[in-house]
Each structure stands twice: as structure tokens, then as C-alpha cells.
Amino acid sequence: MAGMKAATSAATAETGATEPGTAETGATEPGTAEPARARRPRRAKRAYGGALVLFLAALYFVVPILASLWFTVDDPAKGFTLDAYAKGLTDEGMLSALGLSLRLGLATVALGLLLMVPTMVVVALRLPRLRRVVEVLCMVPLIVPPIALVAGVSTVLSWEQDLAATPFYRTFQLLQNKNFPLVLVLVYTVMSLPFLYRALDAGLRGIDLKTLVEASRSLGASRTGTLWRVVVPNLRSAVVSGAVLSLAMVLGEFTVATVLGFEPFSVWMVHVGEYEAQLSVAAAMLSLLITWGLLLLLTNLAGGRARNRRKTTA
């Protein structure tokens, strides 16, 4: 459940990027409002209305987080305590589960990008007619519920015994390695396709791909060189936002992991919650922090260059 929260927070951070504009008007308006009020009362009213909506939305997100925070630091016997956090940070189960989730997330993002960036570039350049097909294919995971997806996957995995005598057996074992279950990476990659597609599609629409690629080719660059030096750098913010959404999805994913019997962070948290509620919620708070940290890091990676550019203009 806390994993879900992590995903929601990622989504909030995404929309948050567009929010400051509204927040700014809300903040600057009161200062200028004094002389302006007589002339533009409506404008001021609208600004206050915006602030109200923002305040209500903030309540909606902040109250549950504060309640969880209170729950983790308040012990009926001892009063304020950070025991739950200390325990969580030293708990081996939690650290290994969190490590697994992060590794799964990174592997998923890497595989997803490796698959989608070249595909979408080729489709945009050479096969524009396939654009709709790719879009529909990439959106399918949104429509198919994870439980249906995992049912299919477990059926395939159950062939393992029948294949015991063949070389495929090793592959099946490798896929289900408890330390790093590749099968989860494969399933998560499929589940991340909608996020990657949407982000990359927006990014590709924002640049004149054909001209940039042709310019690079005319200057002697190979196809891969062009992809790496020209296309990817100009899709940077799209790649980052797709990666952030996919990562948040993986960190919060529960259904597939639990049905296939693996224990990444989300599954561990639910298990622990059954007997140690405070530790479980503390872990949820930590995961929230980690997700925010990652978001901040990635957004900085994406925005760094743009900010430098703005500085040179000024």
C-alpha cells in the first residue's frame, strides 16, 4: 500500500512541475492586489480560488502522510521515538528487499529504453504507418490487469518441469533466480511500455527528428552515432520522465511479484505489516523519501542543461 503511495507521489511530482505557475500567481497577486483590486477584482478572486483548490489538494496528500508519520514516531508507552526507523534501517530483510526493488527498477528502465527509443525513432522516421499499431500495442498493458498478465506468466513458468531434460530448463531457472528474478524485469518492462511510449512520443513531437537525423547523417555520422549523439540528448527530458514513471511503477508493484513468489520491497512491506505495523509504515515513509530523492535527482539530470542555457541568456 505504501508502494502505491510512492507511485502516487511520483505522479504528484509530475503534475507538480506545471503547478508552480499557478502557485506563483497566487503568491504575487496579493502584493499587487492593493492598487489593482479596484480595477480587477475578478482577477484577484480567481487567484484566491486557485489558492483554495491548491490548499485542498495539498490537504488530500499531506494529511495521510502526516498521519503515517505520527503513527511511526508515537509510541503509546514511550511517547516520541525513532525506534521504528532505526530498526528499519538496520533490518536486513528491508535492505535486501529495497535493494532488489531498486535493481529491478533500474533494469526495467534500461531494458525499456533500449527497446523503445530505437523502435520509436525508426517508426517515426521510416514507418509512420506503424505508429498507430505501436501505440495500441504499448497501451495494452494499461487495459490488461496485472493479475491477468501474471496468470499467463505463471502458466508459462509452470512448463519448467516438462522441460527438465532440455537446455530451456537452465533459462527457466535463471529467469526465476530469487536474487534477481529476470522474469520480473521482463514483465515490468511490458508494464512500463505505456509510460515510456507516452513520454517518448511527446518528446519526439517536440523536435524536428527528420531534419536533425538528416543533418547528422550528411555530416558523416552513422545511424547509431546519430541516435546516441543527436537523438537521445534531445529526448533527454522525455527519457527521464518516462524513466521516473516506470521506476515509480516498479517500486510500488505488488500483484505480479507476490503471485510469482518474489519479495521485493512492496511485498516485504505487506508481510512485515502483518506482525510489525509500525516498522511497515516506517518503511513506507522511507520508500517515499527514496522515491522523492530519485525524482529530484532525475529531474535535476534532465533540467541541468536547460538551466545552464537559461543562465547564459541572462
Binding site: E214, S216, S222, P233
Partner: peptide
Amino acid sequence: ANKRDIGMVFQSYSLF
């Protein structure tokens, strides 16, 4: 194209 040793200026702005 990349082996032809040409220089090209495009109609639309094509700088990276």
C-alpha cells in the same frame, strides 16, 4: 548519405 562527403543546409532550422 554519411559516406558521400557532402555538406547540407536545410530549409528548417536544423542545428542540434
